[in-house]
């Protein structure tokens, strides 16, 4: 009996040890062994050029938003929880700021998401931004299924005894180095919430994914809890 089990055990042991070693990231967290392509961008249209998109179309009504008045209701909250029922996301929100390089900081763990606190409060006029990891070193993270969202899906954000409902308007993938930061984080007349996670192929050289998925949503409803 022992004779038959021990080679099996040895094989399994070697498998697990070698898997751990192969899959382990040296020194810094976001590293992995290969740069091979994934199919994660399926269903997400890559926007080629913002300019031609806006100028070539006969009308761009989606860019037209009525202005708001100074006294317009601001319903911004300090968010502490996000729920996205259609992909079973229910996560805690951490208020985060900048990385030392001036980028957007993200949570250190894989289960929380990060709100860009120097920017807009969810519910206020402007672009509020929440980012979450798509995966960790060896498995999916909180925003792994973000790619499966559809325009029209709802996002709930809780905080300050309020529940805000946002409706997804569109989704775009952008190259990591060439994302329209101002469109995602910058000024707008609408009360928007944008979610970010990684997508595309993993770039070993840059220790990051080659693209970012942005989910754009707009405030639809607010409720006192």
């Amino acid at each position: 009996m022992v004779r038959k089990v021990s080679p099996l055990a040895l094989g399994l042991l070697v498998f697990f040890i070698s898997f751990q070693m192969l899959n382990e990231e040296p020194a810094e967290e976001p590293r992995v062994l290969s740069t091979s392509e994934t199919t994660r961008t399926q269903g997400v249209e890559v926007k080629e050029s913002l300019v031609s998109d806006q100028l070539e179309k006969a009308t761009i009504e989606q860019n037209y938003t009525p202005a708001v008045k100074a006294s317009s209701e601001q319903s911004g909250i300090t968010p502490d929880r996000i729920q996205i029922p259609s992909i079973n996301v229910d996560a805690s929100i951490k208020a985060l700021g900048y990385t030392p390089e001036g980028g957007m900081a993200v949570p250190k763990n894989l289960i929380d998401v990060g709100w860009f606190e120097p920017g807009t409060m969810p519910g206020n006029q402007g672009n509020a931004v929440i980012a979450g990891h798509v995966d960790g070193n060896s498995g999916p993270a909180v925003f792994y299924d973000l790619k499966d969202l559809q325009p029209g899906d709802e996002i709930y954000v809780y905080g300050d005894n309020m529940k805000l409902t946002f409706e997804i308007s569109r989704m775009e993938s952008y190259p990591y180095e060439d994302a329209p930061i101002r469109e995602i984080f910058g000024p707008t007349n609408s009360h928007s919430l944008n979610l970010i996670t990684c997508t595309g192929a993993y770039d070993k050289e840059a220790s990051t994914y080659s693209e970012r998925l942005a989910v754009f949503s707009v405030l639809k409803d607010q409720q006192k809890l």
């Binding site: 899959n23 990231e25 967290e29 976001p30 590293r31 992995v32 062994l33 290969s34 740069t35 091979s36 392509e37 994934t38 900048y98 990385t99 390089e101 001036g102 980028g103 957007m104 900081a105 993200v106 990060g114 860009f116 920017g119 980012a131 979450g132 990891h133 798509v134 995966d135 960790g136 070193n137 060896s138 498995g139 999916p140 993270a141 925003f143 792994y144 952008y174 990591y176 180095e177 994302a179 930061i181 101002r182 995602i184 984080f185 910058g186 970010i196 996670t197 990684c198 192929a201 993993y202 070993k204 220790s207 990051t208 994914y209 970012r212």
Partner: peptide
Amino acid sequence: MPTMMPATGFGGTADS
């Protein structure tokens, strides 16, 4: 605004 997009993945679900 941040100067760059967040790093939101470690590649653990990539083909690697």
